[in-house]
Design a protein around this nucleic acid. Sequence first.
RNA 1: GCGGACGUGGUGGAACGGUAGACACACAGGACUUAAAAUCCUGAGUUCGAAAGAGCGUGUGGGUUCGAGUCCCACCGUCCGCACCA
Length: 880
Amino acid sequence: MAAERYNAPAREKHWQKVWDKGRIFEASDDESRPKCYVLEMFPYPSGRIHMGHVRNYAMGDVFARYKRAKGFNVLHPMGWDAFGMPAENAAMERKVHPGKWTYQNIDTMRGQLKSMGLSLDWSREIATCAPEYYQHQQKLFLDFLKKGIAYRKSSKVNWDPVDHTVLANEQVIDGRGWRSGALVEQRELTQWFFKITDYAEELLRDLDTLTNWPEKVRLMQANWIGRSEGMLVRWALDEKTAPQGAGELEVYTTRPDTLFGASFLAVAADHPLAKAASENNAELAEFCEECRRMGTSVADIEAAEKRGFDTGIRATHPFDPSWPLPVYVANFVLMDYGTGAIFGCPSGDQRDMDFARRYDLPVVPVILPPGEDAATFTLKNKAYEDDGVMINSRFLDGKSTTEAFEEAASRLEKQKLAGKPQGTRKVNFRLRDWGISRQRYWGCPIPIVHCSDCGVVPVAEKDLPIKLPEDATFDKPGNPLDRHPTWKNCSCPKCGKAATRETDTMDTFVDSSWYYVRFTAPKAATPVDKKSAQYWLPVDQYIGGIEHAILHLLYSRFFARAMCDTGHLQFATNTREPFAALFTQGMVTHETYKSQDGYWLLPNEVKFEGEGASRHAVEAASGRPVTIGSIEKMSKSKKNLVDPDDIIAHYGADCARWFMLSDSPPERDVIWTEAGVAGAGRFIQRVWRIVEDIANAYPSADEQAKPATFGPEAETVRKAAHRAMDQVGKAIEALRFNVAVAQIHEFANVLQAALTKAADGKAPPGLDWASREAARFLVTMIGPMMPHLSEECWARLGYNTLLANEPWPDIEAALLVDDQVTIAVQVNGKRRDELVISRSAGSQEVEAAALALEAVSRALEGRPVKKVIVVPQRIVNVVG
RNA sequence: GCGGACGUGGUGGAACGGUAGACACACAGGACUUAAAAUCCUGAGUUCGAAAGAGCGUGUGGGUUCGAGUCCCACCGUCCGCACCA
């Protein structure tokens, strides 16, 4: 009788219901058990889930289910990053309220995630757009404000002209808005900021403790924070040339050692000194204006030449009162880094060199590169920026760069200018404070009131939440809250007079900066239930895309600390890191298809003909030729999408999951192919057949009645089973899912071969018991990856428990090693033969056996043996 | 420009400094079938050879080592991040 095929779509629904009904994935705080918090980056409810989600959540689910089986109390929650621009765009385009649109999407996507069979605790579901969530965020904001972590200031900000809102520095990529892609403009606005710079030092230092984070992400964050050690140096300005009241100019430098190579000073166009000097100098004013107009896009900066304008002001060298230097306004000096002013040392900095050559300023080499002769060393147009020995530097001559730094720094510290030290050591960071004001509707309202008498007043806590008005309009661009007829009218919490609300909302990255904390007690009356947070945090394994390497991950690291400092959060251990381990998975890619007329085609609009090199595609409907394009990230614009729903309906969720986990290492991109999915589908049927065969052939083997001895066939099966179990566990632990899949394949091959052989004749001794055990192992080890299939197999084997609740089996260590080992035999490093020998054989025994091999003596060609290296149980190398 | 990662068969990829190519996809041959599908078995880095076997093989060139895909140096290529940060 031919075995029934496993009907994945039907059985998957069944098991999902069983799990759901048993509420087996709901987590509770249980101090007596070791916890494991597994989290995947929660999705933005854009409409439907895509394959990227499937990959992300499949990985997280394997890890979560595995940890469950290993006895951990697992927290594996899911929620929605539900505020954001697309909802407002939808409102503008389709006249649907952002809230309605968002919740509809959430319903759709929740259904899709449920069809994946994820071991999620849905009782903890949160949506950041719900007042039940954002009211706590408003409370956090008020406490940040009290503590000085939130503040308001006027500054130049990035303005996205398409989304009509401000963007944080982290959200500007190559001069464009991260979401809209529009060229960002600079605008002077009063905005709310979070003082992330107060944490710069800690955020940088603690990167070292994140040993379970990808090196790449840590490096990116370190570069973003951008720490540099240097000095603030004050230069006296010549009274006769300086504007009134401007007695000195402070510059920031990381190279006080090169002070004797200085040939000019330069300030940014927006520097106060530039402004003062412009007052009586129309030409200079015009130059400053030109600098301000200069674009900030990459192309603009690359095209821009180093240009400057001599202000006529002269400064005095700190180490030589008789040495005057010109002060320029220069277009390459940034106002918002350091002091907005520099001293230029052309020989030690390429930008200064370019500038000096253009304006014919002196170029004095002060650092001699190793191996160069001081007498002959010259610099053309290339600055030497590395370390060496000081020259042309008076009291610094002969010192190393480091020594010279110290000497110059300590002299400047002692030296006085106008009664104060001329130089002070200063650590500078590239990181800027996080601007969180957004001129949008669909975000968390900032709980602030503006009163004409009292100024900026925080909303009283009893008045939280400040809810969004339902009846906003979206028919034109701009901030719907600001133009709402009544919403912003309120009374001042301090004096009671008529006042107006803050109409800006918070950056949606604020919402996602603490959701992982909220998951630990999603219904608590306060933002955080400290006890629950202490039990569950930090997240043990966080999984998501590399695109958040800086944005979300840096903000979250800051937020955890800010929440600690405002008394909301406390970690059980000596850390303030929210994510103990991070894994960044690769993207899902697919071939692209273009029609003759040049428009993109969906994969299911294309039909393939031929194989290998002659493979080509035609339009399924018309038969017209199609160009197969490059493999790219699945995207709507290129139409190279495969809908998870279609795959799940046709092949089942297990198949999609298994394919995603096979072959490609999880950190790399995976190419979605129809053939690959079909292959995964075949393996599912294969597992089902193996289990059916065993269940039919050995329906009643008693697990307790383990035979005392096993025949060689049974022994082989047992070894393969225990080894695979061991390897698969280790691979999952290390998130090496592709390796786990390969181990399972290998084991299935061994098992199937043994069964096929046994079917020919009478069953060898112990194979019945070993096969039952092997089936049990096989089903358990595929459990985390293909939970429905394995549940079905578990039942087919006659168990009336749920596999999802079963522990990971114990492994017999004795079965992991062989009595006999195969050792490779090399002659002069080249493999010539191999040797099967007892595992316990000593070096001398192995050596003797190796030298006795015919292949060895042949390879030696009569040369005497000089040396024999024996690596026990691995290899022998005969050197001759 | 600065910083980083990567480079292995037709393809995706395995490989504590120790038998390179596990496992899979695709391919070829065979079995079963009236036939197909499904399934099962076998083969395969490459060159020479009937075979046994030998040579060559992890981007290129050097080096360290008894032994290098793995470590070091230089170069080539691909990808990623930052980008006038003083």
